[in-house]
């Protein structure tokens, strides 16, 4: 299913300047993988060398942090919006 990523300005140099990117994915993790497959230079900014989401990177599904949902296994629905926000500082509240 198709979902939309909102890209922070600091990462737009790696998405050809795009503020939003449409990808396919059944879960948050799969959508992230689709995103980094489309824009490979994004990967090292989002994941550690062992493949985990870097600790300061927050991904919100609509308005909720996926760490408070099912982390990367969080299921997605058609039309969902995922937002990548650095936790400078602390995440949305």
């Amino acid at each position: 299913m198709s979902v939309t990523f909102r890209i922070p300005t600091a990462l737009r140099p790696y998405t050809e300047g795009l503020a939003t990117v449409q990808v396919d994915g059944e879960t948050a993790g799969a959508a992230l993988t689709s995103l980094t497959a489309a824009y490979p230079t994004l990967a090292r900014h989002l994941r550690t060398e062992t493949g985990e989401l870097r600790s300061f990177v927050n991904v919100y599904l609509n308005d909720e942090d996926i760490r408070a949902l099912g982390r990367e296994s969080t299921p997605l629905r058609q039309g969902d919006t995922l937002t990548i926000v650095p936790s400078i500082a602390g995440g949305a509240s």
Partner: peptide, 25 residues
């Protein structure tokens, strides 16, 4: 996306906060 401590301290001092897009930093 400034953290909750910061916002609370600012409000304690009576500061008017205008929140801006977290994607823009």
């Amino acid at each position: 996306n400034a953290n909750v401590e910061r916002k609370k301290i600012l409000r304690a001092y009576g500061v008017e906060i205008v929140e801006t897009d977290p994607l823009e930093g």
